[in-house]
Amino acid sequence: MSHVLVIEDDEITAREIALELAAHGISADRVNDGLQGLQRAQEPIYDAITLDLMLPGMDGLTLVTQLRERGIRTPVLMISALGDVNERVRGLRAGGDDYLTKPFAPDEMAARIEVLLRRHRQEPSAQTRLRVADLELDMITRIARRGNRELTLLPTEYRLLEFLMRYPGQVLTRAMIFESVWGLRFDPGTNLIDVHIARLRRKVDIDGEPSLIRTMRGSGYRLG
């Protein structure tokens, strides 16, 4: 069972996080201030961390910066009531692995934690090629192929395909895709993701080939 450290000073939010993680088979410990969080986060028993940015004792940005300076690579999901793009960029530059804005849906939070856990186990930074079925992406040459057919991808299509291929078989929500590929907070009113998925699907899945990009209604998309 994976073990997550929840660093959150709001008791209701911390309880919601712990209950949702438990529903996904993930155990959680909670601390409610930054100084204690920094101490606990250095323990090797945790597979991931949820980190509120606004904490007593030590703020989340300082905490994650100190963790990275000390060589602690545990993946961190940063959580904040501040939803502007600059705040998100600061959090990720400080060493956070993902960023979620309050208020959030508990299942969205759990999905992001599961992605971080999977990414950490696979150590994707060491990968130079991604493969799903007969679809292959060379991240050095930035060339994608399906079988013997080379795909001509625009820059956004390439980033979208790379993100999907990093997590084969896993449902990725629209919010996760939007923030990872476009670097922006998801707007439920936009159809930008659907338009780009449709364009990418026309290049990846042509007549006679099994469909690899699947729409999971009400949830998001899955590759493979």
Rank of each mutant, 00 (worst) to 15 (best):
S2Q: 15
V6Q: 07
E11I: 04
T13V: 06
R15F: 10
I17F: 10
I26K: 08
D29K: 02
V31C: 01
N32A: 09
D33Y: 03
L38N: 04
R40W: 07
A41H: 09
A41Y: 08
Y46L: 10
Y46M: 11
A48K: 08
I49L: 09
L53V: 03
L53D: 05
L55V: 00
G57P: 02
G57M: 02
L63I: 03
Q66V: 04
L67A: 01
R70V: 11
I72Y: 13
I72R: 00
T74I: 13
M78L: 10
I79D: 02
G83Q: 03
E87I: 04
L92H: 00
R93F: 09
G95P: 01
D97A: 09
Y99M: 03
L100V: 07
L100W: 03
K102Q: 02
P103V: 02
D107N: 15
E108R: 12
A111D: 14
V115C: 13
R118E: 15
Q122G: 13
E123W: 14
S125E: 14
A126T: 12
T128A: 05
R131I: 12
D138K: 00
D138C: 02
M139N: 00
R142I: 08
R145T: 11
R149S: 12
L153R: 00
P155Q: 01
E157T: 01
Y158T: 03
R166D: 15
Y167A: 12
Y167S: 13
Q170R: 14
T173M: 10
M176Q: 15
W182D: 08
F186Y: 13
N191V: 05
V195P: 00
R199S: 01
K203W: 07
K203R: 08
V204D: 05
D205K: 00
E209K: 12
S211H: 12
I213V: 10
R217G: 07
G224C: 10
